[in-house]
Amino acid sequence: MSVERELHALRTATTVTPGDHVARVKLVGVGAADLLERVSPRALFVRTGKMSHTLLLDEAARPLADVYLCCDEDDFFILAEGLTAADVVAYLRPHATDLEVTFEDLTESHAVLSLGGPYAWELLGELTTPDVIGLPYLGFFHAEAFTCFRGGKTGEYGYDLLVERDRLAGVRAQLADIGTRFDLVESTLATQDVAQLEAFFWNARRQSPVGLTPIELQLQWRVTYGRAFPGAAALAERRQTAHRRAVLLASATALEPGAPLRFGDRTIGTVLDAAFSPTRGDWVGMGIVERAVAHSGLELASGAAAVHTLSAPSINNRSLHVDPQRHCFATRATDVFPPLVRR
C-alpha cells in the first residue's frame, strides 16, 4: 500500500493503523492522580472518562514523550509516544515511592489500533454504538471489546482502541467487514508521520532533539507554569532566553533534516523534520528558526530549495468541516468542502 493511497484515505475516508509504537500503561491505586500531578507539566484537571494531553520532560525540559493521561475513577491509563512502556514506568517510579500506586505495563496484554479520517466517527459508530458521535475530543469510554480514546494527531477524527490481545482478531474481523462500507485502508506509521507533519503536530519520535523545549516547539499550551514538575526550572530559565521557534515549511524541492535555512544571506535556523506530502504535492517540514523571523508568509532558502513558511496546518482537514449531524460517508461526493490544500 502506498503512502499516497493511505494519506488520501486518511484525508477523505477512514484508516486503521496498528499502534505498536504507542506505549500503554495503567496506573492503579488511589495515588495515581497524585503521581501524575507531580510529573505532568500541565495541571491535571481531568475527571473520569476524560484525558489530559501533555508531555513528559527531562530535567533539561526536553520533551521525551507525547502523552495522554486518561482518568478512569482512581486509576489512569497513559498512552505515550516517544518512550516505551518500560521507559514510562521507569520515569514515573521514582516519583511514587510514598504513594499507593502500582504500574501495569499493557504492552503484552493489549494492542492499540488507531482509527482516523473524516468519517472515522461513523465507522466507530457501526463498530460500537451510534452514541459514539457524542464522544467529546479527549474523552474515552469502555466498549465491550476495547477501550476507545478520542484523540488524534493528524487533524482528522482520531480514535485509539485499546484492545485485549485475545479479542484483537475479532475486532480486526469486524473492522474488515464494516470497513468495506467506508473505504477503510490499512495505514502505516510512516504515513501517520507524514500526516502529522502536514498538520504541524509535534512528533515525539522524530522532533525531540537535545536543546529544544516546549517553548521552541510551540507546545506551551501543554504546560501550566508555576507548578513543580521535572524540567520546570530549566523551562522557566529558557523562558527568559528563548530565541528560536518552530515554523511550518513548504517547498517544491526536497527538504533535508539538519540543513540550514537562510533568510537572504543570513542563516536563521535549520530544518528539523521534513517529508514529501502527496496530499499537497510538495515537501512539508518543521524548521527551527530565530524567533524574530519565525512567522508565516516568508520566503526562505535551504540549499538550492526555495522554502516558504505557512500558518499551520498545511492542509484543510476535512474533519473540521464534516459535521456528524449533517454529513455522512454515503453523501460525501455531493457534500461541499473546501479544497484539501492550503497554500
Binding site: 475530543y137 510551540q218 523562558r239 511550518l248 500558518s311
Partner: peptide
C-alpha cells in the same frame, strides 16, 4: 496566560487554549 505563552500556531480551541 501570559503573552509569551500564546504560541502563534497553538490550537485555540479544545485541548489547546
Amino acid at each position: 496566560r501570559e503573552v509569551d505563552e500564546l504560541d502563534p500556531d497553538a490550537p485555540l480551541f479544545g485541548s489547546g487554549f
